[in-house]
Design a protein around this nucleic acid. Structure first.
Length: 957
RNA sequence: GCGAGCGUAGCUCAGCGGCAGAGCAUCGCCUUCACACGGCGAGGGUCGCAGGUUCAAUCCCUGCCGCUCGCACCA
């Protein structure tokens, strides 16, 4: 909190000036200012046309519900997209990330309905409904609601750092997109791909609307299986004898929905079922109602189930509907749209479905026609939106004839014009597309795109048009009434990749950005959205809507459970952003974005990456302390002149002077190349977790843990060593910030601004259209691997140095020696190279390990000496224990090490003792194992002699 | 039933043919001059089970077992 006060003059920081970084990473103090700066400077803008040689990169956002609030799923998808977008922008592509929101038909409408219900009572004393207001008033209210709430989700996207081109923000019901919707509807209708018809559809009695197959979610329920007896009779009603028993025949049929028997119009058996062969062509008597219905045969019937008989209710079951069509059965509607039994249900008319079930069962029990009741696990379809049981009913609706649209969409994926990642989802896609059914697109709602179809009051014909027609296209009548229904929300989202770019106008944006580059979304909407965009894109643009589909995993809570309000396990991204900053959250999501697995998010992880941001913050602060003589701390060169930026930039200077560089400087530059390669590869292959890991281990494990420590010595030494080290440090940190920027844009921008020698940006985006230059890390050139900085020798040298330092630290740790305890170390080189090397690193080792001296010795070890044998470099370190450590502790350490060496040795020997290994494994490998064996043996003997000496000493104590 | 994915350290996950890795958690030592949102060290895994291929298998193949998610469905 104190931090924000300290940074109150934040806008000043935007200017180039000597910076004073705060004590630690406090994201609340700068994130929002930085976003505003980017946004106001036009950093997110795309250009309508590419400059020559430039590529375009485009992603359309999966539009969140306009009245929604940001949840972890949004945070994940938008973090991933923003990373890709920022990366491409830095690479110099003309980059467009299209923002926008979805009107979300049912969801939004029901929120407004709830609000209205709270406001008062209707004429009959019940809460107000939309019908009390009327369509026009209700829509006004909903638009108002939309205006009031739309900014919430977009503001939250901004808090995340999303670099969306807000000038291109769209809404599925804005004027342009609505025109696109009408255009598509009319054209599909003209093509015969949209029709209106009476079909069996899913109906939600609560939402009072038709639903598509996808909007009904099957759920396992514990239910019952009721066995009902249907008597078998002749056409004239006389009883039929069962030849097997000689008694009056009847058929026992199992059902999970007894109330549907009111609508039964047949009983079916399998044609080859011997048991019922005698019943073919006879009739069954419907229990309770006494209606006589035919017994039909169909291979659909499962002979194994129950007694092999099936009741057929064509009006209220999808399979029965098909069966009914095949056998030309009458259709009896008994379940009404209002959730109540219709007049056709006789005595049960007017009852709710659930009441009717109880009443029917009671009556069956009384009449003796209920033979048996069993427990049964069955599935019911729930309305995706309200969780109420949705019922199949027959109703007149608009449909998209989907097969002709599906074919090119299947081909697009088969031929590789669109690639799924992970690829395994393609199978899921094909599975659904090959068995696709016509899409019911009409919804009995008010909030949405009203269907552009008008019915003539005089000739009853339908006129479909782009704008309200004056007269009927069939009879010329002027009495027209528009269809009251609206379209499925997904109908407009299906057009999103081209409607947002201005279609049906032939815009420059379409030319530049369609097909879009990547679609990033959740696998849960492959059918709802992805497949439909492909179909519409292929049909209307003649081209795929995107080249790659990147599907991320589901974000769950730390226990792996789905986050939901009712469970109370929702982690709010905004809370995390406020507490820890957007960057740590983004880094967490990127690090966990490995594919094919659920993401179990834990707050611990976010805290860990906050620490990471703080670590990088302090690394940059370290640089400032070195650069600024005023803040020179103890140990720095006193009165060192401020260093000027090297001519031609740090990079060129380092290339020119590469041969003169200290091993540590050459080493970190070499490691930087490796990191650039790994980060780049991760972004390219959608393995953001690889990139994140590479950034983390390079920044913390190499730059902070080792390089900065190495650097302290030459920085203190002053002169040319100090100069080259400062230049290296500055260069490496700037490159690191640049590499990190797509993942953690805020903290990197804040830190980058503070650098005194910022490189000039050189992406085309920066200077395009004669815009003033904007100084931001966003437009820095993306780092490229430069093989001239690769330096195996330096890497080997630092590896050796680290080996020595780590061995000494381990010795210290195992013996619980305080860092303040200093002691002398000597070494015995196994060869002249090792001796040479040890001499070269002696200074570094002394400074990093806090030892008094590191000198070569020859001859046998003295009686107080313990040894630490090292393979790389090939030396034996010797330390006199006199007055230093507890001998028993050291004995323990030596024994432990011997055990380890012994284990390794026997492992190697087991390998080498197999003739097959010697003869078949690669020669180099065999040679390496032989070397290992020798090295292990040598180590062992050194340790053994040390142990002997120690036990003599130990005996004395 | 069909399809997909997953079972690796206490937890979350990476690795996917040559002696098991990270972060967090745990235990020691340290407030040392960028950082205690820190440093150093240590402990901890027959890589779900059983076969097979291979000189060599956590990694490839087959079969089980367990968990998760799609799709279809027994009315």
């Amino acid at each position: 909190m104190g931090q924000s006060k300290q940074r109150s003059g934040q806008s000043e920081v935007l200017k180039r000036e000597a910076s004073a970084l705060g004590k630690s990473y406090e994201p609340a103090g700068f994130e929002q200012d930085i976003y505003r700066f980017w946004s106001e400077s036009g950093c997110f803008d795309s250009a309508e046309e590419n400059v020559p040689g430039q590529e375009s990169f485009c992603i359309v956002i999966p539009p969140p519900n306009v009245t929604g609030v940001l949840h972890m799923g949004h945070a994940l998808t938008n973090t991933i997209q923003d990373i890709l977008v920022r990366w491409h922008r830095m690479k110099g592509d003309n980059t467009l990330w299209v923002p926008g929101t979805d009107h979300a038909g049912i969801a939004t409408q029901s929120q407004v309905e709830k609000q209205i219900a709270k406001e008062g009572k209707g004429p009959t004393g019940r809460p107000l409904t939309r019908h009390d207001l009327g369509r026009e008033k209700f829509l006004e209210r909903t638009w108002q609601w939309k205006e009031e709430h739309a900014h919430i989700i977009t503001d939250q996207l901004k808090r995340l750092g999303s670099s969306l081109d807000w000038k291109r923000e769209r809404f599925t019901m804005d004027e342009g997109l609505s025109a696109a919707v009408r255009e598509v509807f009319v054209r599909l209708h003209e093509d015969g791909l949209i029709y209106r018809g009476e079909r069996i559809i899913n109906w939600c009695p609560r939402c009072q609307t038709a639903l598509s197959d996808l909007e009904v979610v099957p759920q396992d329920r514990k239910g019952h299986l009721w066995h009902l007896r249907y008597r078998i009779v002749e056409a004239d009603g006389s009883a039929v004898k069962n030849p097997a028993t000689g008694e009056d025949a009847s058929l026992v049929i199992a059902t999970t929905r007894p109330e549907t028997l009111l609508g039964d119009t047949a009983v079916a058996v399998h044609p080859e079922d011997e048991r019922w062969a005698f019943a073919h062509g006879k009739f069954a008597v419907l229990p309770l109602l006494g209606r006589k219905i035919p017994i039909i045969t169909d291979t659909y019937v499962d002979r194994e189930f129950g007694t092999g008989g099936l009741k057929v209710t064509p009006a209220h079951d999808f399979n029965d509907y098909e069966l009914g069509k095949r056998h030309d059965l009458p259709v009896v509607h008994v379940m009404g749209k209002d959730g109540k039994i219709t007049a056709a249900g006789g005595p049960y008319a007017g009852m709710k479905f659930s009441e009717a079930r109880e009443a029917v069962l009671q009556a069956l029990k009384e009449s003796g026609e209920l033979v048996k009741t069993e427990d049964h696990q069955n599935k019911v379809g729930l309305c995706q939106r309200c969780d109420q049981v949705a019922e199949p009913i027959i109703s007149k609706q608009w449909f998209v004839k989907i097969e002709p649209l599906a074919k090119p969409a299947i081909a697009a994926v088969e031929t590789g014009k669109i690639e799924f990642s992970p690829k395994s989802w393609e199978k899921t896609y094909f599975e659904w597309m090959y068995n696709i059914r016509d899409w019911c697109i009409s919804r009995q709602l008010w909030w949405g795109h009203q269907i552009p179809a008008w019915y003539c009051q005089s000739c009853q014909e339908t006129t479909v048009a782009r704008s309200t027609p004056e007269k009927c296209s069939h009879c010329g009548g002027a009495q027209l009434k528009q269809d009251e229904d609206v379209l499925d929300t997904w109908f407009s989202s299906a057009l999103w990749p081209f409607s947002t770019l201005g279609w049906p106008e032939k815009t420059k944006a379409l030319q530049t950005f369609y097909p879009t580059s990547i679609l990033e979304t959740g696998f849960d909407i492959i059918f709802f959205w992805v497949a439909r965009m492909i179909m519409m894109g292929m049909h209307f643009m003649g081209e795929v809507p995107f080249r790659k589909i990147y599907l991320h995993a589901m974000v769950r809570d730390e226990k792996g459970e789905k986050m939901s309000k009712s469970k109370g396990n929702v982690i709010d991204p905004l809370v995390l952003i406020n507490q820890h900053g957007a960057d740590p959250l983004r880094f967490t999501l990127a690090a966990m974005a490995g594919q094919g697995r659920d993401i179990k998010l834990s707050v611990d992880r976010v805290e860990g990456y906050r620490a990471f941001c703080n670590k990088v913050w302090n690394a940059v602060k370290f640089l400032h302390l070195q650069l600024d003589p005023q803040s020179a701390v103890d140990g720095l060169v006193p009165n060192a002149a401020p260093l000027a930026e090297p001519q031609g930039g740090a990079r060129q200077w380092l290339l020119d002077n590469h041969a003169k560089l200290l091993p540590a400087n050459a080493w970190i530059l070499s490691r930087l190349q490796e990191s650039i390669a790994t980060v780049e590869k991760g972004f390219k292959n959608f393995e953001l977790n690889e990139s994140a890991q590479a950034l983390y281990s390079f920044a913390w494990g190499e730059v902070c843990d080792w390089y900065i420590e190495f650097a302290k010595l030459p920085l203190r030494a002053g002169g040319a060593d100090r100069e080259q080290t400062l230049i290296t440090l500055h260069y490496v940190l700037e490159q690191l910030l640049t590499l990190m920027h797509p993942v953690t844009p805020f903290v990197t921008e804040e830190l980058w601004r503070s650098l005194p020698w910022r490189s000039p940006a050189n992406t085309p985006a920066r200077t395009r259209d004669g815009k003033p230059e904007i100084e931001t890390l966003m437009f820095q050139a993306w780092p490229k691997v430069d093989s001239r900085f690769r330096d195996e020798k330096a890497e080997a040298a630092v590896g050796g140095l680290r080996g020595v330092v780590e061995a000494l630290r381990s010795f210290r740790g195992e013996n619980s020696l305080s860092p303040r305890t200093e002691f002398a170390v000597s070494y015995v080189p196994q060869n002249s190279q090792a001796g040479e090397f040890m001499r070269s690193i002696a200074g570094d080792v002394r400074s990093l390990s806090r030892i008094t001296s590191l000198e070569p010795v020859t001859g046998a070890a003295g009686e107080f000496e313990t040894v630490i044998p090292l393979a790389v470099p090939a030396v034996e370190l010797r330390i006199s224990l006199q007055g230093l450590v507890n001998v028993e502790e050291e004995q323990k350490r030596v024994r432990k090490e011997m055990e380890k060496v012994q284990a390794d040795l026997s492992h190697v020997r087991a390998k080498l003792s197999r003739e097959s290994f010697i003869s078949k494994a690669p020669v180099e490998l065999v040679a390496k194992e032989r070397e290992n064996e020798a090295a292990h043996l040598a180590k062992l003997s050194e340790l053994e002699s040390a142990l002997t000496r120690l036990s003599r000493l130990g005996g004395g104590k």
